[in-house]
């Protein structure tokens, strides 16, 4: 199958790649652009390890075709920190030991960031339901939820 030329913006940088029309955005990020921070846990939209935002909307990049990124804005885990300054969620995940193996972490951070942009003051239940599409097999979620709530509190304080 002949490849399609795609021009898109990833984490603020304009990038180009050649995509087989069958390849997912996740495949293109990982295999064509070398952005391996987004993970494939299932390839079927069930685990959230591949979470990215597309024009600001949270998506499973395994369910988006690479060619669909044409002209869009993609944000991945690699763009979450500003230089060496971690996003508050990243810092709180470290402080709360909210990762064990860390494989779910990029997707959960991207998803949690999307939540806090929509809802800066979520309840525990809201966080749990928002993250219900992000599987973590290691932590039992306890420390993840605490880290998200703590980051939200800190970000609200900074905004105030």
């Amino acid at each position: 199958m002949s490849k399609i030329h795609v021009t898109t913006t990833v984490n603020g940088d304009e990038v180009e790649f050649l995509a087989d029309p069958r390849e997912s955005l996740l495949d293109c990020l990982r295999d064509h652009l070398g952005l391996t921070g987004s993970k494939e846990g299932c390839g079927t939209g069930d685990c959230g390890a591949c979470s990215v935002t597309l024009d600001g909307t949270l998506v499973c990049s395994c369910l988006v075709l690479g060619v669909e990124a044409e002209g869009r804005r993609v944000a991945t885990i690699e763009g979450m920190a500003e230089g060496n300054a971690l996003h508050p969620l990243q810092r709180k995940f470290l402080e709360h030991a909210a990762l064990q193996c860390g494989f779910c972490t990029p997707g959960i951070l991207v998803a949690a960031k999307a939540l806090l942009e929509k809802n800066p003051d979520p309840t525990e239940t809201e966080v749990r339901y928002w993250l219900a599409g992000n599987l973590c097999r290691c932590t039992g979620y306890d420390k993840i939820i605490r880290a998200v709530l703590d980051a939200a509190a800190e970000m609200r304080q900074e905004a105030a």
Partner: peptide, 19 residues
């Protein structure tokens, strides 16, 4: 204390099997 491999794991830099 913070785990030594933590920074790599919250920034997507840590290299897993398929990476």
């Amino acid at each position: 204390p913070l785990r030594p491999d933590g920074l790599d794991k919250v920034t997507g830099r840590a290299r897993y099997g398929a990476d």
